[in-house]
Amino acid sequence: MSTNNPALSLQEPSTLEIRPRYEGSNICTWIGFKHVNYLVEEAVLNHLRQGGLLPGTVYETYGLCTDIVDIDTRILHAFHIDDVAVAEVRPHRRAKDGELLLSVVLHVQRETLLKAVTSTVRVQLRLDPRGGGAEPVPAQLAPYAVERLAAVPGWEPEPPEANADSADLVKELTAGRNAHAWRFRIPYWYCHFTERMQMSGYLRLMEEAKDRLVADRGVSIKTLLDEQNWIPVVPHSRITVLDEARMEEDLYVVFTVEDVFKGFTYTSRMDTYVVRDGALLQTATGRITHGYAVIENRRDWSLVSFDDRMNAALEGQSA
């Protein structure tokens, strides 16, 4: 890509073959939702590069940070560690002019080539004042450039019923709710482009939120694995960035159980907040759907219905 005149072809579809990261094979050889989203992220970055928008180059040249600000992913078939994902990325049919809204499909080879994952991803180019000496943003990139990350421009949050000055803000954020919360200091390795929390950091927190919730209610992942051979499975997840969270800020993570569907799956909402200028500011929201499966062998599992203990936990009753 020429630094003076970037030639973009982002309307053309792209393809990529990629394997899951070994780290994501947490239970048997199945790949967890977080690492499925990492596959989606890599497919999107490859699409941008093939289209002439190289994240490293546009940052070093124009001070533009490539950020995923919304990722909505459905998992139709599980990936295993030795699988090769065949990714196809193209502009989303609902994408408007000046909008980087992409449709991602991951296929996996079984007896036939199966559609394994579908995802919708929104990307923004965040102007970064750090570093200095950046060239002017060219006309081809200007429609995608923003001064502040927000997947929903003009979004006006409804403040939670909590006092930002409270000594126990975690308790206030969960009062009267079927929720679990904790305070988390944002470390540098959850950030990129020097100081802002990136999407993968939110994915890690969403995974941790599930772990904390069930442990707090006496049905930890290890407990159900040992006693019932159950493991959690995720068919759908979504995270939307609403504002920026910064390195070393205290992030308040609230995980609320919303709906239980026919005793097989449940949906939880994750909301994150920082205290800034004496007020609570929401930085992200997301939803994730969980079910449970019984391990049949090292290769196969099958979905199970919730028992009384799990239903009680999801209703907010500790064991």
Rank of each mutant, 00 (worst) to 15 (best):
N229Y: 10
A142D: 13
K34E: 11
V86W: 12
A179R: 00
E227D: 03
D259Y: 14
L76Q: 12
S9G: 14
L205W: 06
L53N: 05
W182R: 02
P91D: 15
L113F: 07
A279V: 10
Y252Q: 02
A313F: 05
T118N: 14
I231R: 00
R49G: 03
I288P: 00
E42T: 06
C28W: 09
P232C: 02
S220L: 00
P138Q: 10
C191S: 00
V121D: 13
I81K: 13
S25A: 14
H92P: 00
G32V: 13
H107V: 02
E60D: 14
I288Q: 09
V121R: 13
M197V: 01
A164E: 07
G263W: 04
Y202M: 03
E88R: 14
D250P: 10
W301H: 13
W301K: 13
C28G: 03
R122Q: 15
M270I: 05
L303M: 10
N26W: 09
S305I: 07
S318A: 15
I288K: 02
Y190E: 01
N311E: 07
A293K: 00
A293E: 08
M247V: 11
R217E: 10
C28Y: 10
A151F: 12
S305R: 12
D211L: 10
Q109W: 05
V104K: 11
Y144S: 04
I68N: 13
S302W: 06
G98W: 12
Y202H: 04
H47N: 11
F33S: 13
S2Q: 08
P235N: 03
H192K: 09
R309M: 05
A167E: 15
L242H: 00
V36A: 09
V123L: 13
R309T: 02
L102N: 09
R19I: 09
S268R: 15
T240K: 03
A181M: 03
Q317W: 04
V146P: 02
T256F: 05
E147P: 00
I81V: 11
L203Y: 09
Q124R: 05
M310H: 04
E161W: 00
V260A: 01
T272N: 04
L127A: 15
D72C: 11
E23N: 11
N26Q: 12
V84A: 08
G286Y: 08
F79L: 05
N229D: 12
E12F: 11
P160N: 00
A245Q: 06
D128I: 05
Y62C: 11
P160L: 04
K96L: 13
R185L: 02
I81C: 10
E158P: 02
I239Q: 08
V254D: 15
R74T: 15
L225S: 07
G291A: 03
